[in-house]
Amino acid sequence: MLSVTNLTKRFGGFTAVDRISFALEQGEILGLIGPNGSGKSTTFNLIAGTLAPSEGSISFLGQDIGGRPPMAACHLGIGRTFQIPRPFKRLSILENIAVAAYYGQNGQISRTRAWEQAEEALNLVNLPSDPKSPVDGLGAAGLKKLELARALATQPKLLLADESLGGLDEHEMEQAADMLSLIRREKNITIIWVEHIMGVLMRVVDRVMVLDHGEKIAEGLPREVARDPRVIEVYLGSEEIKIADAQGDAGGDAGGDARA
C-alpha cells in the first residue's frame, strides 16, 4: 500500500535521509528504528507531508504523495501522532478527537457521526469519553493515548506512530504496544511505528527497518535484525538485543539497554 523509492531529504549540505527505499503491505506493522539523528523522524515527516522530499517518491495506494501538505496526506488516509504530544488544550478530550474525526474525513460526515467515532476511538485506547473531561488531567501515558486516538479518529489506512512510548514506564509501554497490535487486529490499519526504545517494539512489529545516518542499514524480521552485526554495532554498541517475548522479564532489560 505504501512504496517509498530512493527517498532523499537534504537540509542545506546535510543529508538527513539518503536514498531510502521500502514497501509496506496492507495490515503490516513496520518498526522504524535507529539512534537519535538517524533520519527516522525525517522519513516519518516526509510521508506525513510535513516535509517535502528533495528526491525520490512516496507512493500511497497508487498515488504519488511526496510533497503534499499534511492536510492532504490526512485526507488520503494517513494518520500520525507526534513525538511530543500536541493536544488541543482548550478542547475537552472528546472534542479533541471529534474535531479530528470530522476534519480528518474532510467534513464529509455529520457532526453526530464525528462524535460517535470519537467515542469509539477513545474506547479503543481506554480514555474517558464523557464530554467534559479536560485534557489537563492527563499524564504522559494519557497524552500518548490521546495522540493515538486523535490519529485513529481520522479513520486512517496508514498510521504513523512517532516514538509513542518515550516517557512511559515499563507497564505503560507494554500496554501501548498491545494497543497498537489491537488497532491493527481490529481495524486492519497498517502501522509504521517509529521508536528508539527497541524492547517492546520487537515483540509487536512484523518487520523492522533500521536507519543510521540517514541510510537504511538493515531490514527484516525482528529476530534477524536483532542479530545483524551492523545493527548491534551502530545502534546498541556491542551488546546483543534481547527480544522482549524471548525470555520472561527480559523486556525490561532490553528497554533499558536501548535507551542507554
Binding site: 492536510m71 494518520g79 500536541r86 493536544p87 476534519y103 467534513g107 486523535r150 479518529a153
Partner: peptide, 24 residues
C-alpha cells in the same frame, strides 16, 4: 459551528490541526 473546534485546535497547535485534516 464545527469551525469553532477547528479554530480552537489551530490556536493551540497548528501542525497537529493540519495533521488531522484541518485546512489551517
Amino acid at each position: 459551528s464545527m469551525s469553532r473546534y477547528a479554530l480552537e485546535a489551530i490556536s493551540e497547535e497548528e501542525d497537529a490541526a493540519a495533521s488531522v485534516g484541518i485546512n489551517v
